[in-house]
Design a protein around this nucleic acid. Sequence first.
DNA 1: CGGATTTAGTATCAGATGAAACTAGATCGC
DNA 2: GCGATCTAGTTTCATCTGATACTAAATCCG
Lengths: 160, 160
Amino acid sequence: MTHDAESGLKLDGYLPYRLSVASNAVSGLIARAYQDRFGLTIPQWRLICVLAEDGGLTQNQIVARTVMDKVTVSRAAQGLLKRRLVGRSDHHADGRSHVLTLTHEGSRLHSEIAPLALAYEAALIAGLAPEEVNLLKRLLSRLQSAAGALAGESLPPSLR
Amino acid sequence: MTHDAESGLKLDGYLPYRLSVASNAVSGLIARAYQDRFGLTIPQWRLICVLAEDGGLTQNQIVARTVMDKVTVSRAAQGLLKRRLVGRSDHHADGRSHVLTLTHEGSRLHSEIAPLALAYEAALIAGLAPEEVNLLKRLLSRLQSAAGALAGESLPPSLR
DNA sequence: CGGATTTAGTATCAGATGAAACTAGATCGC
DNA sequence: GCGATCTAGTTTCATCTGATACTAAATCCG
């Protein structure tokens, strides 16, 4: 059984707790690496990643693409602009929007960091079978969408 | 292949990203529930849980037991003290320490929240096979300890 | 013993976070 | 066409977070 019979709940076996602790450990590790080596925050790094993948995007598109708050994206963009790692040009059809693109320097930085990011991932999953990693990713996706569904809709009776 | 050949890195498939996004979604859901219904923060709730499980503990023991900063534990304890959900008595052998225990009211609150917490977990893992959930927990543990190892030791050449 | 170091817990500060208010531009509906 | 509403993005504010500094008690060791 997952939880004991008495209280019905043990913190160590409680999934949201395990998830949070594991995520904090991993995020902390990665955040420190990017900060120390490149002066980037995690939101800034995510922004660089999606711009490298998808090319020019508006902040709104970035919000939709990554799961970040628009305020977070705004601040990350400002920081990157100041360092000239991204450029912004007016949107051809919408005066409120700007299109963000990586500068040459931003691109260079991305290709410098990417191998490091992959090395971290590889070190983290060392010892796991590839199919375990794939399963893990699928399970994480399911948890995410389950949480989203529970947060969005009116709550089912069991949680009311 | 997990990542594309060009940049070698796709954000959507990047494990630390998936982990962080899933964890934020789940934590946010749970944090809102505890806050709205019981006025508890997540650290406060964790504290209540370990006290319910293990009985009287010093803050130091709580820090070791949960993976929280001592500052976080200190603040959580103060909040719970103010609401008289926990009591503190002098440690018999160490004048710096105090032993925290749940008050009657704290105990009552715990047994009120626990079923809700379990219902949330059940809703999150609905549709997953039990062995998938177990595997997930084991994988999360491995990631956590791998991250801890990478953070602690001097870095291996691949990450230097 | 008694000074030097370590440890439990608190206080302070600087940075990050997201909710809510706000500005300016776009879209809708009459 | 033009006011009402909506949307992209920024600013503000209140809160959370953890690093650092600090206080008081304990332990170590000469």
